[in-house]
Design a binder for these strands. Structure first.
Lengths: 230, 230
DNA sequence: ACCTGAACACCGTTCAAGT
DNA sequence: ACCTGAACACCGTTCAAGT
């Protein structure tokens, strides 16, 4: 009640864009983006909702900043790493960052304004590929196919209502039971014989596809070098 | 004002789940999912918002049904089509359906309950690959890598704030201008030299990556056949 | 069986006002 | 400069009530 908050023990640390964004990311990680409200976010910072509007024009700007911050978490290749292990490691890092912040994938679709974190990221990747002798157009192809694959894979992986393979078995079992098996013979067979197998692993499935793509790019690069393109 | 709607000219056709779902899809196509509200959807059907709750438990169920209906639009391979052209055509069909209903990708992430349309779809694809001699595990790999790629590609493509390559040039030009070029040399070079090129085309970029993947699968299949796996 | 009105507990955002 | 209270125009959903 009383106005007794003197001494410089800073009654509360002042709001900054950075504090807002990291609180927002934390909140989204815990409860999902759907539950990320201006009022809830403000409360988690010990402040009123309207204070946020002093630092951000609207909720959309906060979402943009969250996406950019997530991107900045991804490990970047050094410019003269070998391209293949570098791309492989970076794809794995991107996957794990996106799995940590599953809401980010859906957000990226709806807010394409690239921030500085995103551009820094892109620049490093293009640089690594160009140094490895990729032509401009092959660099663009490589970037497109790798990123499409990673986003698509993680978005399917994270959309599924389970994490461990035991949970997978439970869910898949449930689906199978309630399904007219004779109407979907191949699907049923597949679920029963493959996804229910205890050693099924998203991490391995991810690497199979990724290596298929990287090997394909390696072949294109070799062909390009022998053709002498730029 | 008066109660004058007799004769069986049916003052309004009765609500059915199908009518609700197709009105919802139309509305989402026109204005985006964000603008798809229970009140707005009801209004577009000449009905009050609460009427929808007689046919669907909640908004989530409507979203589930929308996703399933979109999936049912995708062209399916016949069981004994050659696998490669069949997968190529189906990937193209999936891309174009998803481009027609860009909201569907984001929705699929958040609502993984597969409906009958989705399962029918999966069943046909698995059947086609199995008939072509793919082992169970290679079928799973193929499915995973192709779909991940298509979803990821389209989600990036549709997230961009332009459609034609002239618009691309405009936007990319704007980004470049406002960017500290010396800080992002590779990114700037790429945008200037490649994406700004007038003949850049998403459709072609899509096919380059897709064919890279299909060729890789072909190689794995050949290796499998000569090994005699099942 | 099918549809509705009123009401509840929420949203994001504005605007004028406080310190 | 930084934060806030009250208010506005929205949401999804419940529940009792109408035909």
């Amino acid at each position: 009640m009383a106005a007794r908050v003197k001494k410089d023990e800073s009654p509360r640390t002042p709001l900054t864009p950075e504090r807002v964004v990291s609180a927002a990311i934390e909140l989204a990680d815990e409860k999902g983006v759907a539950k990320l409200t201006m009022r809830g976010l403000a409360a988690s910072l010990g402040v009123e909702a309207m204070s946020l509007y002093y630092h951000f024009a609207n909720k959309g700007k906060i979402l943009d900043a969250m996406v950019d911050a997530v991107f900045a978490e991804v490990e970047l290749p050094a410019k003269d790493d070998e391209w293949k292990p570098a791309m492989r490691a970076r794809a794995g890092s991107l996957r794990s960052v996106l799995l940590d912040h599953t809401w980010a994938i859906a957000l990226m679709d709806s807010r394409p304004d690239p921030g500085l974190g995103t551009i820094t990221h892109h620049d490093a990747i293009i640089g690594c590929l160009r140094s490895a002798g990729f032509s401009m157009s092959l660099t663009a192809h490589a970037f497109s196919v790798i990123d499409s694959y990673v986003y698509g894979f993680v978005s399917q992986e994270s959309g599924l209502p389970f994490q461990s393979s035991e949970e997978l078995a439970d869910v898949a079992g449930g689906i199978i039971e309630s399904l007219p098996v004779e109407q979907f013979p191949h699907f049923s067979e597949m679920v029963a014989a493959y996804y229910l197998h205890p050693e099924y692993s998203f991490a391995e499935e991810f690497l199979v596809g990724l290596d298929l793509i990287l090997d394909g790019l390696e072949r294109l690069r070799a062909a390009e070098v022998s053709d002498g393109e730029s």
